[in-house]
Simulated scan of single mutants.
Amino acid sequence: MKFFLISDNIDTQIGMRLSGIDGVVLHTKAEILPIIEEIRKKKDVGILLVTQKISELIPEELDNLRRSRTLPIVTVIPDRHGSTRSKDFITRYVQEAIGVKLK
């Protein structure tokens, strides 16, 4: 299985390309959606990496892709500027998902 990257900046795309991961640099929802459909049809792509800025442009589409429980698996990665998520993101996510407060 291969990885594929959809990035909003060339620096992330170049870094991933140096590690053997193919990808594209896109900036609008209209550009992104056809690429996602193309990737879904490819049987050799197992993980779709998406930068945070891209994920903010298409949250509903990524949620639908995750809920479909089919390949590719979607993973949101920080870009060159780092993560915009809060430090307690995982704790809050678990709390919201299962209703258990973690300390």
Rank of each mutant, 00 (worst) to 15 (best):
residue 13 Q to R: 13
residue 39 I to M: 06
residue 67 R to K: 15
residue 5 L to V: 00
residue 30 A to H: 01
residue 60 E to C: 01
residue 62 L to A: 01
residue 87 K to V: 13
residue 85 R to Q: 12
residue 62 L to D: 03
residue 34 P to C: 14
residue 42 K to F: 02
residue 42 K to D: 13
residue 73 I to W: 00
residue 32 I to K: 01
residue 98 I to L: 13
residue 12 T to D: 15
residue 14 I to K: 05
residue 34 P to A: 14
residue 33 L to D: 11
residue 103 K to P: 03
residue 32 I to V: 14
residue 10 I to E: 14
residue 22 D to R: 12
residue 87 K to H: 08
residue 84 T to V: 15
residue 23 G to E: 10
residue 41 K to W: 00
residue 59 P to N: 04
residue 63 D to N: 06
residue 47 I to W: 00
residue 36 I to T: 00
residue 2 K to L: 08
residue 27 H to I: 13
residue 81 H to K: 14
residue 6 I to S: 05
residue 92 R to P: 02
residue 68 S to F: 02
residue 53 K to T: 15
residue 18 L to I: 15
residue 89 F to W: 11
residue 64 N to C: 01
residue 46 G to Y: 02
residue 12 T to Q: 13
residue 99 G to P: 06
residue 10 I to T: 12
residue 41 K to L: 10
residue 60 E to R: 09
residue 5 L to H: 06
residue 61 E to Y: 09
residue 100 V to C: 08
residue 60 E to M: 02
residue 15 G to M: 05
residue 59 P to K: 08
residue 76 V to E: 13
residue 15 G to W: 03
residue 23 G to Q: 08
residue 68 S to Y: 03
residue 68 S to Q: 07
residue 69 R to K: 15
residue 93 Y to C: 11
residue 86 S to G: 15
residue 95 Q to K: 14
residue 14 I to E: 02
residue 86 S to T: 04
residue 22 D to K: 12
residue 102 L to A: 10
residue 76 V to I: 13
residue 47 I to H: 01
residue 12 T to G: 08
residue 57 L to V: 05
residue 78 P to V: 00
residue 48 L to H: 05
residue 77 I to G: 14
residue 81 H to A: 13
residue 98 I to R: 02
residue 84 T to R: 08
residue 9 N to F: 09
residue 51 T to A: 09
residue 63 D to Y: 05
residue 54 I to R: 03
residue 26 L to F: 04
residue 2 K to E: 13
residue 41 K to N: 12
residue 8 D to N: 11
residue 62 L to M: 04
residue 31 E to S: 12
residue 7 S to K: 09
residue 41 K to V: 03
residue 26 L to W: 01
residue 95 Q to P: 07
residue 45 V to C: 01
residue 36 I to P: 06
residue 37 E to F: 03
residue 15 G to Y: 01
residue 86 S to A: 13
residue 22 D to C: 06
residue 56 E to M: 11
residue 10 I to A: 07
residue 54 I to F: 03
residue 22 D to P: 04
residue 87 K to Q: 06
residue 55 S to G: 11
residue 95 Q to C: 03
residue 72 P to D: 07
residue 98 I to N: 02
residue 86 S to M: 10
residue 53 K to H: 07
residue 50 V to E: 00
residue 58 I to G: 05
residue 58 I to L: 07
residue 59 P to D: 05
residue 30 A to D: 13
residue 6 I to W: 00
residue 94 V to M: 08
residue 41 K to T: 10
residue 42 K to V: 10
residue 28 T to P: 06
residue 102 L to R: 06
residue 63 D to I: 14
residue 74 V to W: 03
residue 26 L to G: 10
residue 16 M to A: 09
